[in-house]
Computed example of a mutant assay.
Amino acid sequence: MAAGVKKIVSTILSEAESRAEEIIKDAEKKKDKIIKEGKEKAKKVKEETLRRLKKEGKMKYRQIISNAKIKARRSELKTREKLIEKSFKIAENKLKEMASKHSEKYKQALINLIERSITEIGGGELQLHLNSRDTEFIKDQIEDISNKVSEKIGKNVKLELGEEINTIGGVIVRTKDGSIEVNNTLEARLSRLKKVLRPEVADILFK
């Protein structure tokens, strides 16, 4: 009986040892597999992270360059606009100087502006609104201007001096009832011409 018990114990121990060895070997295999998978996963994460950071870096670089270009373009346009406005301001000052000196060139230009305004309205009873200096000059020219334009357009033209206005030069012509007005002051003409001349001025300045 003792021998049988010994055999049983021996067999159990032998199986236990064998089973333990199998478990250990299996654990070793799993350990190696887990370590290998862990390394591969870590490598993959590292590569993906590097790719992502590289991509983000490129995007950020492009964004910085794009923003810099936009900023530079805005600055350039702002500088151009200042130069264009400066050109118009110089032109305005020259007109002021010409008008204040009441040169023959300005006087003729003023008469032309009045005649053009009357023609645009189509004649009739009209009022001329000028600054005080031009009013003094034009009051002696009214009859000649009326006759000249009347003959030109084939309609009766009757002119009278209206209320004086604050302007560097030029004229506002209104119908007597105030329903129609043509503003040909130098300021108004310069303002209108800005839109037309701006591209030409820009072309001259930045060609």
Results as ranks from 00 to 15, higher is better:
Met1Gly: 06
Ala2His: 11
Ala3Cys: 10
Gly4Met: 07
Ile8Leu: 00
Ser10Tyr: 02
Glu15Val: 11
Glu15Leu: 14
Ser18Asn: 15
Ser18Trp: 06
Ser18Val: 10
Ala20Gly: 06
Ala20Leu: 15
Glu21Leu: 13
Glu21Pro: 01
Ile23Lys: 13
Ile23His: 15
Lys25Tyr: 01
Ala27Val: 13
Glu28Thr: 05
Lys30Glu: 13
Asp32Cys: 05
Lys33Glu: 15
Lys33Phe: 01
Glu37Arg: 14
Lys39Asp: 14
Lys41Trp: 15
Ala42Lys: 11
Glu48Leu: 11
Glu48Val: 04
Thr49Asp: 00
Leu50Asn: 09
Leu50Val: 10
Leu50Arg: 09
Leu53Val: 10
Glu56Cys: 04
Met59Gln: 11
Lys60Ser: 06
Tyr61Cys: 03
Arg62Ser: 05
Ile64Asp: 03
Ile64Met: 04
Ile65Ser: 03
Asn67Pro: 00
Lys69Thr: 04
Ile70Asp: 08
Lys71Ile: 01
Arg73Lys: 13
Thr79Asn: 14
Arg80Trp: 06
Glu81Tyr: 00
Glu81Asp: 05
Ile84Gln: 04
Ile84Asn: 04
Lys86Val: 06
Lys86Cys: 03
Phe88Pro: 00
Lys89Gln: 12
Ile90Lys: 03
Ala91Ile: 10
Ala91Glu: 02
Ala91Met: 06
Glu92Gly: 03
Glu92Asp: 08
Asn93Pro: 11
Asn93Arg: 15
Asn93Cys: 07
Lys96Pro: 04
Lys96Phe: 11
Glu97Gln: 02
Glu97Phe: 07
Glu97Trp: 05
Glu97Lys: 10
Glu97Pro: 04
Glu97Ala: 06
Ser100Glu: 14
Asn112Pro: 00
Glu115Gln: 11
Ile118Gln: 03
Ile118Ser: 00
Ile118His: 04
Glu120Ile: 14
Leu126Ser: 03
Leu130Ala: 00
Ser132Pro: 09
Arg133Thr: 05
Arg133Val: 04
Asp134Tyr: 00
Glu136Pro: 01
Lys139Ile: 08
Gln141Glu: 02
Ile142Arg: 07
Asp144Phe: 03
Asp144Leu: 07
Asn147Phe: 06
Glu151Lys: 15
Asn156Thr: 13
Val157Ala: 09
Leu159Pro: 09
Glu160Met: 08
Leu161Glu: 05
Leu161Val: 10
Gly162Val: 04
Glu163Ser: 08
Glu163Asp: 11
Glu164Tyr: 01
Ile165Asp: 03
Thr167Glu: 00
Ile168Leu: 10
Gly170Cys: 00
Val171Asp: 11
Ile172Val: 07
Gly178Cys: 11
Ser179His: 10
Ser179Trp: 05
Glu181Gln: 12
Val182Gln: 13
Asn183Leu: 08
Asn183His: 09
Leu186Met: 01
Glu187Pro: 07
Leu193Tyr: 08
Leu193Cys: 07
Lys194Tyr: 05
Val196Ile: 15
Leu197Asp: 01
Arg198Met: 01
Pro199Asp: 08
Asp203Ser: 09
Asp203Asn: 14
Lys207Leu: 03
